[in-house]
Amino acid sequence: RVIAMPSVRKYAREKGVDIRLVQGTGKNGRVLKEDIDAWLA
């Protein structure tokens, strides 16, 4: 299970990103909004 705040999950869904593919850089591997942006870049 991916650790991410609900707002980040929603952001990823809106961008069409599968959050399971994104490498989290936050505490304990948490996926941050910046990680979604970096994955899209």
Rank of each mutant, 00 (worst) to 15 (best):
K27I: 10
L21Y: 14
A4K: 04
Y11V: 03
R9G: 03
T25C: 04
N28Y: 14
V31L: 06
Y11E: 03
N28R: 12
V8Y: 02
V2Y: 03
P6S: 14
N28H: 13
A38W: 09
K15S: 09
K27Q: 11
R13P: 00
D18G: 03
A38M: 13
V22S: 01
V2F: 04
W39L: 08
D35F: 00
L21E: 09
R9K: 13
L32W: 05
L32Q: 09
G29I: 02
I36Y: 00
G26Q: 02
D35Q: 01
D35M: 01
R30K: 10
E14P: 00
G24F: 02
V8A: 05
L32H: 08
I3K: 11
K10Y: 12
L40S: 06
R20P: 02
R9I: 10
K27H: 09
A4D: 04
S7Q: 10
A38S: 14
E34M: 14
N28S: 10
G29E: 05
V2M: 05
R20A: 11
E14A: 15
M5W: 12
G16P: 00
K15G: 03
Q23M: 14
Y11D: 02
V2G: 07
A41D: 12
I3V: 11
R30W: 14
S7R: 12
V22G: 01
G24T: 03
V31M: 03
G26V: 03
V31G: 00
K15Q: 12
G16T: 04
T25I: 03
V31N: 00
G16Y: 08
R30Q: 11
R1H: 14
E14R: 13
A12V: 01
R30M: 13
K10N: 08
K15M: 13
W39T: 05
G26F: 02
A4V: 07
V17L: 06
R9Q: 08
N28L: 14
R13M: 15
G16K: 09
G24W: 02
I3T: 09
A4I: 08
G16L: 07
W39G: 02
E14Q: 12
A12S: 06
M5V: 12
K27S: 11
I36D: 00
E34F: 14
G24L: 02
K27W: 13
A38R: 12
D35P: 00
A4H: 06
K15E: 06
G26H: 03
D18V: 05
R20M: 10
G29D: 06
R9M: 13
A12R: 00
I36S: 00
V8N: 03
V31Y: 02
L40R: 07
E14I: 12
V17W: 01
T25Q: 05
A41M: 15
W39A: 06
L32E: 10
D37G: 03
R1N: 15
D37R: 06
G24Q: 03
Q23K: 15
A4T: 07
V17Y: 01
A12L: 02
L40M: 11
I19F: 05
V31F: 01
R13I: 12
R20N: 12
W39Y: 15
A38E: 13
I36N: 00
M5F: 14
V17H: 00
N28A: 13
K27N: 11
V31D: 00
V22P: 03
G16M: 11
A38P: 01
G16H: 10
E34S: 14
A41S: 15
V8E: 06
R13Y: 14
R13G: 08
R30A: 13
A12W: 02
R13A: 11
P6N: 13
N28T: 06
R20G: 08
D35H: 02
K10H: 08
P6D: 10
V8I: 09
P6G: 11
A12Y: 01
M5E: 13
A4Q: 05
E14N: 11
W39Q: 05
G24A: 08
S7M: 10
M5K: 13
L32P: 00
Y11K: 03
N28E: 10
S7D: 12
G24R: 04
L32G: 06
P6W: 08
G16V: 04
R13D: 07
E14H: 12
I36T: 00
V8G: 02
S7W: 15
R30N: 08
E34P: 08
R1L: 10
I36L: 04
G26A: 05
I3M: 05
A12K: 00
D18T: 05
T25W: 03
R20D: 09
D35A: 01
G24Y: 03
V31R: 03
R1S: 11
S7A: 10
K10E: 09
A41N: 13
N28I: 05
K33A: 08
K10L: 11
Y11P: 01
G26N: 02
Q23T: 13
A4W: 02
P6L: 13
I3R: 12
G16F: 08
L40A: 08
V31K: 04
P6K: 15
L21N: 09
A41K: 11
A12M: 01
E14M: 15
K33P: 05
R20K: 14
T25G: 05
M5I: 09
L40Q: 05
L21P: 02
V31H: 02
P6A: 14
D18I: 06
M5Q: 11
R1D: 12
K33E: 06
E14D: 13
E34H: 15
V22W: 02
G29Q: 07
L32C: 07
S7K: 13
G29K: 08
A38T: 15
M5N: 12
D18F: 05
I3S: 09
A12D: 01
K15R: 12
E34Q: 15
N28F: 15
P6F: 06
V31S: 01
V22D: 00
D37N: 10
G29N: 10
L40T: 07
S7P: 06
G26K: 03
Y11R: 03
V8W: 02
V8S: 04
V22L: 09
R1E: 14
I19E: 02
G29S: 07
L40F: 08
G26R: 03
R13S: 10
R1T: 15
W39M: 08
G16E: 07
R9V: 09
M5P: 10
G29W: 06
G29F: 08
A41E: 13
G26W: 02
V31T: 05
R20W: 11
G16W: 06
V17A: 04
L21A: 11
R1Y: 04
D35I: 00
K10I: 08
P6C: 11
Q23N: 13
D37F: 04
R30V: 08
R13W: 15
I36W: 00
L32I: 10
E14W: 15
V2N: 08
D37P: 00
R1F: 04
K33L: 10
K10V: 08
L32T: 12
L32K: 10
D18W: 05
I3Q: 07
N28M: 12
I36E: 00
G29L: 06
G26L: 03
R30L: 11
K10F: 09
R20I: 08
V8P: 02
N28Q: 14
K10R: 15
V31A: 03
D37V: 07
K10S: 07
K33Y: 07
Y11L: 04
K15Y: 08
D35K: 00
N28K: 11
Q23A: 11
L40V: 12
Y11Q: 03
L32M: 10
V2W: 03
L32N: 07
L21I: 12
K33N: 06
R9W: 15
I19W: 09
S7G: 11
Y11F: 04
K33Q: 08
V22F: 03
V2P: 10
A4R: 04
L40W: 07
D18M: 06
V31E: 00
R20S: 13
I3A: 09
L21D: 09
A41F: 15
K27E: 11
V17S: 01
E34D: 15
R30Y: 12
I3G: 06
R1G: 11
D18Q: 07
D37M: 06
R9H: 11
I36F: 00
G26S: 04
